[in-house]
Design a protein around this nucleic acid. Sequence first.
DNA 1: TTGAAAGCGCTAACAA
DNA 2: TTGTTAGCGCTTTCAA
Lengths: 342, 342
Amino acid sequence: MARRPTIRDVADRAGVHPGTASRALNPAHPGRIAEPTASRVRTAARELGYTPDPTARSLRTRRSGIVGVVVPDLTNPVLPPIVRGIEETLWREGLACLVADTDNDVEREAVAVRELQARRCEGLVIASATRDSATVRALAGGDIPAVLVTRDVDGAGLAFVAGDDAAGVEAAARHLVDLGHERIAYLAGPRELSTTATRLAAVRRTLPGATTPVVVFCAAYTIAAGRRAARGVLTDHPDVTAILAGNDMVAIGVYEALAEAGLRCPADVSVAGHNDMPLVDKLAPPLTTVAIPRAEIGVAAARRLLAGLRGEDEPARRTLLPTRLVVRGSTAPPRTPAGQSR
Amino acid sequence: MARRPTIRDVADRAGVHPGTASRALNPAHPGRIAEPTASRVRTAARELGYTPDPTARSLRTRRSGIVGVVVPDLTNPVLPPIVRGIEETLWREGLACLVADTDNDVEREAVAVRELQARRCEGLVIASATRDSATVRALAGGDIPAVLVTRDVDGAGLAFVAGDDAAGVEAAARHLVDLGHERIAYLAGPRELSTTATRLAAVRRTLPGATTPVVVFCAAYTIAAGRRAARGVLTDHPDVTAILAGNDMVAIGVYEALAEAGLRCPADVSVAGHNDMPLVDKLAPPLTTVAIPRAEIGVAAARRLLAGLRGEDEPARRTLLPTRLVVRGSTAPPRTPAGQSR
DNA sequence: TTGAAAGCGCTAACAA
DNA sequence: TTGTTAGCGCTTTCAA
């Protein structure tokens, strides 16, 4: 037999009707099957090496067994572990992941979601390109469940799973204050990301009064943007003794700006980042940063989606997983007495 | 209309038969359609917001429009850019990627391939867990085309796309020799990977005679394995003045072992890596390494698969893309006169 | 050039 | 408990 076996072949071999064979192979469905019959069918299926055709099954059941995963940039080290967590968890439940990389482009995000829906995916996990994505917002109340990871979208009202950035940033800010820093700059990420707002709010909340931070927004979460922003801060606010960066890439940009300015870290300026991406513990100096539970975020997002697929109604709209401040060599007490400029 | 429009709805609206509507929407097929009719159908489709159901189409055409991408570990920084390149290229051709992460486990690799085939994927792009994967070997001469990326499988005879590691390693080795190093150690990767063999062979070819290298295999491409291997080398061969590492993670392990031993890089020992992974240019010292064209490898692999899908017969079984030696601060001339021990 | 009809492989409602 | 029948939405032969 050249073509692959169908349910008909199995039924013939077991001497039953295709419908019966189908039921025998898909238990727990309406219409119990006598054990001897079921066993005969299973044997026939095994002998033939039968695997149900997912396409035909999908057409009939209107379930594709496919979940769409939309990410802004697979190259961003935060995302692969998350995708991995999603993928493993879903795969274990018999769901396959179609992954789409939008390259941080809203247009491509729209195309990806449309394409995914055309392919009848049953659910979506999305790390959106921007916090005001119309595409994502349109998903709310749609016919398939969607879960946002890492990046929330304003007013979408969708399930959201991420690390508890606020707590992490708060710990980082408090750490700097405890070291004795009084002039702290915060290099926020790009305005179009929800993470930027979350982290910035946490900083503002944690550094009140005397230690009111200098805040500068970076155009992107990149080394170059961080370097530019840090240059500005060092020029305009020479009394700053600590810089809290929106993420690790930005923090590395700060390292570069400090080197350019002939300043040393942490002797002259302390620096802290966010994400604890690979190798930041090997930098000179090793970077103090906020570690986020990447794989767990992926797993939690997948679980949340599975709950949505089962029709469970929003048990928890927001799931924030614990983050952890990792203190390394880039933060130290300010060298100069408080209040004194360099 | 609650349900999504079918070809029937389009046909009704255009006042034609479904078969005609189908042909009008899929041009270049047998049976030309009169332009006015075609135009009417297209308008109707547009007005209804019709998108063909990929499931039904698949069932009929026996083409799923899905390609399987199997990777050993999405967390390995080499892979995401490759996956991205594959995914973008394929997506542009209307093919979607089902991504499976095998966690470097042969068993899971087998399961993933089986599952992917059950889902009727039309082709596979695989970075195999090991160079002797029976699963991958079984794919040769199978009914769907498969392309190997980065990691080859012995005797599989499948299309293979990767960076030209041999040339890269050769350049690195020659660089060390040119600097004046005469005792060079090579810390090879795990034996079960084809990259290990390729790179090692290149080293052996490049360092003949007097500079015959000390070779040690690492249990894995990790920092810890690199550290262990380097410790051994430093103890057993104190005259070694340069260490070429199987990849960047191993090189970082070497950095650690040197620090433990109170040796400095590059003053006491030069170190070079492979892959040019993110941030190795920010290490202390910045790592000399071989850069591989990651995204391009992904694109090339996808193109190769597309060729296979079109039935083009093996235009080029092996595609090796140019690598580039990036010289940074971790390599320098040996401090001690040649032949003299530290 | 278009219509008619069949069927991809499966499952679910209904009947026996 | 099992068989019968119909049909998911599409494409593609065959006829007209």
